[in-house]
Design a protein around this nucleic acid. Structure first.
Lengths: 139, 139
DNA sequence: AATCAAGTTTACGTGAACGTAAACATCCTT
DNA sequence: AAGGATGTTTACGTTCACGTAAACTTGATT
């Protein structure tokens, strides 16, 4: 079971296949704030989730700053003044629209890949057909 | 109708809301190769499509080098040796898997946004409810 | 006690993707 | 012909996201 509750920096580095340098850098940027036992950083399950979110954001081409904005949305979404909350809702909508644009982009790129794949395997068929023909004549 | 067949560099810059510097930079990186009339660059419809693909790739977090790889897939997908073609098919598969990962990432992030939005509007409801209660007591 | 792995801070280096500025050529208009 | 819009090359500057190296502390192991 996933009963682990605390992680060292190299635990996380290993699990997500990144360097400890990166993890400390994310902390520098204010995206993580693990506990300290003396000098040593100790990461909670929440920290681990944050890290996972950071990496997911990066895979989607978001900058670290944008990831931080998403955390703000997440963290303060049940507090704040009415104006704050309204502002947050519009920002959530913006992010959502960006994601929908990405979905469209992915769909189109998948079509391009389909096209390339088809032409590719057709060319391959043509080649092997030619080879078979050559073999047949050789006999 | 979209009958235009040639574009200046600033035509494209305006249309896609990027600088001419970027367009020339993409050319430096081998992603574009427009005709020349003397010194001046003239972009065809194909060039325009390429540019559109570059920007789409960028929105998906691909580097310019990766965009270039995708163009290779597209351009040479109907020529080359058998080995070349097989290699290309595996690379197409790789790209497709990357896109599928992105789809999963987007789905999860949309869920997070849903959660944030819900908590956000609940907090907002609580606030306005409190305000109404205050008004009522004031009467 | 010694050493060794794992962690730390500090600081400079790096590649990608442009921005910005200078100095110049071309063409069109007035 | 003088100016302005649009284009060009060349080259140095900048931001982001780390990499790399040095010099140090701390805790566990032999």
């Amino acid at each position: 079971m996933n009963t682990q509750t605390r992680y060292s920096i190299s635990d996380l580095a290993r699990e997500f296949d990144i360097t400890t340098r990166s993890i400390r850098f994310y902390e520098d940027q204010g995206l993580l704030s693990p506990e300290r036992r003396g000098q040593t950083r100790i990461y909670s399950r929440q920290d681990r989730v944050r890290l996972k979110l950071i990496l997911r954001g990066k895979r989607l081409g978001f900058s670290l700053t944008e990831c931080g904005e998403l955390f703000e949305l997440w963290d303060h979404s049940n507090s704040g003044s009415e104006l704050q909350l309204r502002l947050m809702l519009t920002r959530i909508t913006e992010k959502r629209q960006a994601l929908e644009q990405q979905l469209r982009d992915i769909a189109m790129m998948q079509q391009e890949l389909d096209g390339a794949e088809n032409r590719c395997s057709e060319a391959l068929n043509a080649l092997t057909a030619a080879q078979n023909a050559a073999k047949a004549t050789q006999k």
